[in-house]
Design a protein around this nucleic acid. Sequence first.
DNA 1: AAGCAGTACAACCGCAAGAAG
DNA 2: ACTTCTTGCGGTTGTACTGCT
Length: 342
Amino acid sequence: MGRSPCCDKVGLRKGTWTPEEDQKLLSYIQQHGHGSWRSLPAKAGLQRCGKSCRLRWTNYLRPDIKRGKFSSQEEQKIIQLHALLGNRWSAIAAHLPKRTDNEIKNHWNTHLKKRLHKMGIDPSTHKPKTNPFGSGQQRDNANLSHIAQWESARLEAESRLVRESKLSSVQSSSSSSMRKTSKVPPLQPIVLPCLDVLKAWQGTWKSSTPTSNNNRFFNPGKNLQSPTSTLHFSENAFPSPATTSTTPTTTNNNNATCFGETTMPLGAILTNGNGGNGMQLNDIVGHYPNNNVDAAYFEESSLTPAPSFLEGFVDGSFGGSSGGGDLEDNKKYWNSILNGET
DNA sequence: AAGCAGTACAACCGCAAGAAG
DNA sequence: ACTTCTTGCGGTTGTACTGCT
């Protein structure tokens, strides 16, 4: 009973692959496909076990692999995904085209983990290791609240991911017998994990009891403190809700008048818009001429601590002045959200 | 130039689980 | 129902490279 070893380990080479071995493996697979990995080494004239061949192929020789330095955009995505998925490298890799789980794992362990440490962030929890914001009691409370909300959102998103993963694996297994076993949730349609967290966060805020006061967008109610976070909306980017109604419109307004730069609590964006006390992503972009995300940008002002998964959204997105992500990628991000994957 | 430590990346190992016989 | 095969996955180790003393 039990599994047999992947190879007999006698007379087989281990360690770094030579260019000759690579060439043998590559040319064999190009001609015949890999077939059964166990039988491949003998057929290809390699003194390696099948498992080693498979690893070499999937992590290095495969033609659809992008090698080389990770872009800042990719790094940001890895951090965001890791905040959501933890060490599920294959799941993370599924969201980074042409990158292997092994490469991402190595990059995380050798670069990103250390970088987060230096920034005072615990890479396993994605939370600040210590309070970097001084000693004000009020600030401390706000931060604790912020962290608690973030954690709550994260857990909710994670549980949702698990639910969706189970659901889709049932669907996919019934629809395709070719699909091999995998812990990775199916990728189509792509639902951005960041958005999951945003949604979860929405739920967190929505669960509080809104009251009407002079903040038309956001009122955290009694159970949750207002976040310390605010977002700045640039001039000409955001038509004034004050000129229309107390609730943001969900329809596009090409002739919308704009108000000058304003400061909005993060909750204004993350709480439910149609309910009247906050805005959804659709609501926000609905205010821009032609629903065009190019028309807007926002930048982080005092989101503290900034959850890493939000960085793509609040740190320099849309070519904002604070530097940050690539404009085109951010636009794709947002357009995918607005095209109904939400 | 040699030795050493740190870093980056490739590769290995063992486990889990579905497929196949 | 059971065993074996096969593949995928994540953690860990090994090795080559680089920079410093």
